[in-house]
Design a protein around this nucleic acid. Structure first.
Lengths: 224, 224
DNA sequence: GCCAAGATCTGACGGTGTGTCAGATACGTT
DNA sequence: AACGTATCTGACACACCGTCAGATCTTGGC
């Protein structure tokens, strides 16, 4: 099992501008403004069309200043993604703190599903870039994605392992594989939840189905 | 239930160049060459960096020629996506032709999972753009995505409906929702199958877990 | 309050990509 | 060979990139 770099807040102390300087108060404020504008641009236009010049204009500064703090647009998004991953940690707690016995499993699953849907909604625009970049083989984004999902997957796998001990889930199942695909389901459904409305599927029904699948997948208990 | 535009081959007869002309043999060949080079570029560089000038250079022609056939890079990818969606139809047949009784369900699920993994692998680079663009609200790509997944989802939903009649799946479940999230799982896992290797999860174990979830999800039969 | 010493910002520039013409070139037909 | 049409492209005006030297702000010491 490879080690996962632990999630940690961006350390303001070792921030570096393009020329290696440690930015002061003004510099950090400008950097932050640029980050916010990057996020803004990312929600209002497509990733392909987000230009440094637009971000700079929006932030009331010049492209040159942007390059003082970020190598390119991707680098800025990378920072936004780090922040997001940090906020995703609370999803894990739902799994570790919740009950997975009897009907508690379905309730906890439902809670997890809801949290996922909200989280994805909040970070939609950043997440889609993370997904794309990961898929394109960009290791930096892949790492962030792993950090975000690793704890969740591990926590679900632990529940599965217990169900295996109790004999409700076959021994042949790899708990991490089982947990991983459930997280995939959650992530993908959350990402495309509005796509489902196209088929006239109500979100309430989606939640139900997802929770059912998660609950059964990790506990082996048929939720009826 | 909204109607889904049926999948059909791109009709060569109503192809139009930028100026409204119907291209002849030479023109169609050039167009095709540009499409292939677009696909090529898309696999070798990131979506954001695919430039018209690169495609044109690769195809041994000029940017102006590219614009003769496509409004922009997206338009070309859209065509590639149409072709891909067309090829995805065989996935549906696995569901409709396969057995969903007893242990047949797990075998059919496994077959479906494998087909998904192969399909995603073959069309990885186009699919990630389809996903991104869909997520960004681009209706043209969304439509293709729906066309690709609609038949599959509907077919799985039909199996679920039968399981409901047989009393193995709760009546409260919306078959389309249940099928939809399973397709989400398949799509997302297939997209990130190499990401799973990071955790040391073998593809064999993934297949197994996915098939198990699909099988139980649509039939309600515990596959042990 | 004033003034260096930094810190921060930006104008300006050479390079590259975009998208659109009008005109050049290739092709097929007679 | 000559014509008409299909096809391609050079050239252009515009936009964005990424860099650097120097302008402008800010701060701490006096």
């Amino acid at each position: 099992m490879p080690e996962v770099t632990p999630l940690h807040p961006v350390d303001d102390d070792d921030l570096r501008a393009a020329d290696g300087r440690v930015p002061g108060r003004r510099g950090r404020a400008t950097r932050q403004r640029l980050l916010e504008c990057t996020r803004e641009m990312l929600t209002t236009s497509s990733y392909r069309d987000v230009k440094v010049i637009d971000i700079a204009r929006e932030a009331g500064t010049s492209p040159a200043t942007f390059y003082q703090y970020f190598a390119d647009v991707e680098a800025a998004i990378l920072v936004l993604a780090e922040e997001m991953a940090l906020q995703g940690q609370h999803l894990t707690e739902i799994i570790t703190d919740g009950s997975w016995n009897g009907s508690g499993a379905l309730a906890t699953s439902l809670e997890l599903v809801d949290a996922f849907l909200v989280f994805w909604d909040d970070h939609r625009s950043v997440l889609r870039v993370v997904n794309l970049a990961t898929d394109e083989g960009d290791g930096r984004f892949q790492k962030i994605r792993v950090r975000l999902l690793n704890d969740i997957t591990t926590a679900l796998a632990e529940v599965t392992r217990q169900a295996q001990t109790a004999g409700r889930v076959p021994k042949a199942i790899d708990p991490m594989a089982a947990a991983g695909i459930l997280v995939s389901m959650l992530a993908h459904t959350a990402a495309h939840q509005y796509g489902f409305e196209f088929w006239g599927i109500r979100t309430a029904k989606l939640r139900e189905s997802m929770a059912r699948q998660v609950s059964w997948g990790v506990t082996g208990i048929t939720p009826d």
